[in-house]
């Protein structure tokens, strides 16, 4: 079976991670921020898969399943929080939720 060089996989994972991070930083809509966090999680998962394939170990895939599970839990909590934010502030702008200012 033709294998893809590990570098390509890692570069793709890194690019995805950077894209996700940047969009978390620049987006103000909390739903988009949540999606971006999902992208970052999947980028990390991809890096695990690539590394697992490179060394021929199952650990990478185990970690990926962990990440997916955690992402599901995170999304459920995150969506609940977003609903609450929307109820309270009538907006999805994260900058509006700055009441905890020191």
């Amino acid at each position: 079976m033709e294998t893809i060089a590990v570098e390509y996989g890692l570069v793709l994972a890194g690019t995805l991670f950077a894209l996700g991070l940047i969009s978390v930083l620049v987006r103000r809509n909390v739903i988009f921020m949540l999606i971006s966090v999902e992208i970052m999680l999947n980028a990390a998962g991809l890096a695990f898969i690539v590394a697992g394939a490179r060394w021929g170990q199952a650990d990478g895939q185990v970690m990926f399943i962990f990440i997916v599970t955690m992402a599901a839990a995170e999304v459920s909590v995150g969506l609940a929080l977003i609903l609450q934010i929307y109820h309270q502030l009538k907006t999805l702008d994260s900058d509006a939720a700055d009441k905890m200012k020191g």
């Binding site: 978390v24 930083l25 103000r28 994260s94 900058d95 939720a97 700055d98 200012k101 020191g102």
Partner: peptide
């Protein structure tokens, strides 16, 4: 001084 960094703006924290 450090209390001033506690802006309450989420994106600053991520930064």
């Amino acid at each position: 001084t450090f209390a001033r960094t506690q802006t309450g703006v989420l994106r600053w924290y991520i930064m």
